[in-house]
């Protein structure tokens, strides 16, 4: 599984990255976590409000900081 956290580097994006890491650690699943900061890659997903979370190329949500528990439910 590949998880991408999309965000241009604001505080919210960092919080989301932390929550994703926590969720993955708690789930015990194998996962690659990438932080995507460049605009072209973010736009490729059509995301207009950051931060957003992408799982295996599919946008799970955008424009909010989900909690670790919420993310764990989506993995």
């Amino acid at each position: 599984m590949k998880l991408e956290v999309l965000g241009t580097g604001c505080a919210k994006c960092k919080t989301l990255l932390e929550n994703v890491k926590k969720a993955v650690a708690a789930s015990g699943k194998e996962s690659e976590i990438v932080k995507v900061e460049d605009i072209p890659s973010i736009m490729k997903y059509g995301v207009m409000s950051t931060p957003a979370l992408v799982k295996d190329g599919k946008v799970l949500f955008s424009g909010k900081v989900a909690t670790a528990e919420e993310i764990a439910g989506m993995l």
């Binding site: 241009t8 604001c10 605009i39 736009m43 059509g46 995301v47 207009m48 409000s49 950051t50 424009g63």
Partner: peptide, 12 residues
Amino acid sequence: FCSCSAVPLFIG
């Protein structure tokens, strides 16, 4: 809208 996503919003 949050000004931190002004760039992706503008481009979109």
